[in-house]
């Protein structure tokens, strides 16, 4: 680990990170404020005014009855695949592929640090940036909910939900990081790093909104089912293990390839 490089990564990526995190928190507080402890009749009525296919595609189907289930349907459906995904894509592209494409990687490698050490530092940063996102979201989420509706949020499950989402993001980040390690040009890194996660998202939306629900199961996001977490279904552990294993494979594989490959810098 090179702490100097880690710090410089923070400086480069803090703006995008802060913006995306703030937007997510903003959505979180507005969504939370709609919650009505007496029942969600008003929301249900509102949802009926929208076409069913649209609601399904965005995963807003079951609002449920508790604050947690409502947050799950609004925040941990579609929005979860937007703002943190942008952080993940941008960060993973910047930390390696951009330096390789521009040539500034030459300076990183000319500083007595081995390739392995550089790649390891960047992998740590990639994981840390998304972990920080979910840590901040958890803390602010709890503060916002407790501020507005004291005692209504199942805090234990909420933290566990964020941990579950984080593990999925380790796997998503793994895709971006791997793409960043193997790319010779920026467009390859971005093509894979955006294309694969967004491709999975499209599969998921198709599965939700059409009769062929099996399409949705082709997406890795099918392993992320927060409603099962609420129900206490052990399916989520399968999902978690799958996310951890794919993240481990993608990050270590990426580092190994980066360590061996030719760099035209």
């Amino acid at each position: 680990m090179s702490w100097t490089l880690f710090k410089s990564n923070i400086k480069t990526n803090r703006t995008i990170w802060i913006i995306m995190t703030l937007i997510f928190i903003f959505y979180f507080s507005t969504t939370g404020s709609v919650y009505d402890p007496q029942g969600s009749q008003m929301l249900e009525d509102m949802m009926k005014m929208m076409p069913q296919e649209l609601i399904d595609a965005f995963g807003f189907s079951s609002i449920g009855t508790t604050l947690l289930t409502m947050l799950i349907s609004f925040m941990y459906g579609m929005l979860l695949f937007m703002f943190p995904l942008i952080i993940s894509i941008v960060v993973n592209h910047r930390i390696l592929a951009k330096h390789i494409d521009k040539g500034s990687m030459a300076y990183l490698l000319c500083t007595t640090n081995s390739r392995k050490k550089i790649a390891l530092t960047q992998a740590m940063f990639s994981l840390a940036s998304i972990t920080a996102f979910f840590a901040v979201i958890s803390v602010f989420g709890i503060l916002i909910c407790e501020g507005m509706f004291p005692g209504e949020l199942d805090i234990g499950k909420f933290i566990f939900l964020n941990f579950y989402a984080l593990l999925m993001y380790f796997a998503i980040g793994g895709i971006g990081f791997f793409a960043s390690c193997i790319a010779t040009e920026s467009k390859h890194s971005l093509g894979l790093g955006i294309g694969i996660p967004v491709g999975f998202l499209v599969l998921q939306m198709l599965g939700n909104s059409t009769n062929s629900r099996w399409i949705g199961n082709l997406s890795m996001y099918a392993l992320f089912d927060p409603n099962k977490l609420v129900e206490g279904d052990s399916f989520i552990y399968i999902g978690m293990i799958a996310f951890i294993l794919s993240a481990a494979a993608l990050y270590t594989g990426g580092i190994a390839i980066f360590n061996k490959r030719d760099l035209h810098i």
């Binding site: 100097t4 500034s104 490698l109 007595t112």
Partner: peptide
């Protein structure tokens, strides 16, 4: 690299740094 100095043919730095920040960054590295 411990005892090597290298000037690349194509100059590509960390663009958002000032010259001094960049040189400090490399010394720290």
């Amino acid at each position: 690299q411990q005892k090597l100095g290298y000037v690349p043919g194509e100059m590509a730095f960390f663009d958002n740094m000032t010259g001094m920040q960049f040189m400090k960054f490399v010394s720290d590295m």
